[in-house]
């Protein structure tokens, strides 16, 4: 029992489960999953489908945070990636063909890869603080995306593009498979090779790991490249979901939600130890919380208040001051309990 309680995924998982429980109690139809034309529908399936962009971004963010960095530019990269893909599809003679969409997606991902590499260059080679290095792209990226789309919202009508976000493979949404594939790839690369351990080493002490022969620069750089690429995929999914490239709304505030998901999953912002499974739980928690807030009739614009409360609660639970106070109170309670027990036994004897 204590082993389960001590597991570092216990609290994140408990939060997710209790959130789901609240939803199911408040609304019986929440847990209902219906089968229509061989495809599953329901609130839970929606959460899986809609969480795909946040999942991808948060996975990249986990890697970056593990190297003691942060990537603020993911939302802007999403906007650029969506703008590139949709502009290519829009200008092609056959927007509905699979080939066009494939080319557009590949080009968009290459652009995101380059943007990620640019962030990595600033951080790992020039040694600029991650917050500021990625702030440059965060500011400029949306401007670039607006220029690509010519300041307008590019809309296209393309079945293959639409499939990425709303299509079904077997009985589950295609977007869900994308996030599962991303989780599996990142998980295998980080946990079945030495890469994960090296990343943690770089995050815990960059100087020591460099002296120990770890190529800190390359590892940091690759984390930003991965983050850029994953944000690019997220941008394509977002653009596919609304069949449009909206340079202002795409990935808006997603960097903050991704950071929140990573922190909820138990990865420390101080770098070092990270947990892919924790991030997955964190993303699902954030997404479920979002739909819970909507379900309780709060306008989506007001949901930040709830998220702020969650952030404050989580950081307070993690802080030393609260830990110490809780420990002191607990030991006092236990001391009183045992002493009263002793009195009882004395009385009995």
């Amino acid at each position: 029992m204590t082993k389960i309680l001590k597991h570092r995924l216990f609290w994140p998982a408990a939060a997710l489960v209790s959130l789901l429980a609240v939803n199911i109690i408040a609304n019986q139809s929440f847990a209902r999953i219906t089968m229509r034309d061989g495809q599953l529908y329901g609130a839970l399936i929606d959460i899986l489908r809609q969480s795909a962009p946040l999942m991808l971004v948060a996975l990249g963010m986990t890697l970056v945070i593990a190297t003691r960095g942060i990537d603020l530019s993911v939302g802007a990269i999403m906007a650029v990636s969506g703008a590139v893909a949709l502009t290519i599809i829009d200008s092609s003679p056959s927007p509905g063909s699979l080939g066009t969409v494939a080319v557009a997606v590949v080009v968009a991902l290459l652009v995101s890869l380059v943007l990620g590499a640019w962030n990595g260059f600033l951080v790992s080679v020039l040694g600029i603080q991650p917050i500021i290095a990625t702030l440059v792209l965060m500011l400029a990226g949306r401007g670039v995306a607006l220029l690509i789309t010519g300041g307008a919202i590019t809309t296209v009508n393309s079945a293959p593009l639409k499939f990425i976000a709303s299509g079904y493979l077997f009985i589950l949404p295609f977007a869900f498979f994308i996030s599962v594939a991303a989780i599996a790839t990142v998980g295998l690369l980080e946990r079945r090779t030495a890469l994960g351990v090296l990343t943690e080493a770089v995050g815990i002490n960059p100087e020591a790991s460099r002296l120990a022969g770890v190529r800190a620069r390359g590892i940091k750089w690759s984390a930003y490249v991965a983050s850029g690429l994953l944000a690019g995929i997220a941008g394509v999914i977002y653009a596919s979901n609304i069949s449009a490239a909206d340079a202002n709304a795409a990935g808006f505030l997603i960097e903050l939600y991704a950071i929140l998901a990573v922190v909820l999953g138990g990865t420390s912002l101080m770098g070092g130890k990270f947990s892919i499974a924790g991030t997955v739980i964190g993303v699902l928690t954030v997404q479920t919380l979002g739909s819970t807030i909507l379900f309780f009739g709060v306008p989506s614009a007001q949901s930040p208040v709830v998220f702020a409360a969650v952030v404050i609660l989580v950081v307070l639970l993690q802080s030393d001051l609260v830990h110490r106070t809780a420990k002191r109170v607990w030991s006092q309670v236990r001391a009183e309990f045992t002493s009263s027990n002793q009195q009882d036994t004395e009385v009995a004897s």
């Binding site: 903050l256 950071i259 922190v263 998220f307 702020a308 409360a309």
Partner: peptide
Amino acid sequence: IATLAGLFLARG
């Protein structure tokens, strides 16, 4: 992180 919470709070 603290001021991020502030951002969410005040915007909401």
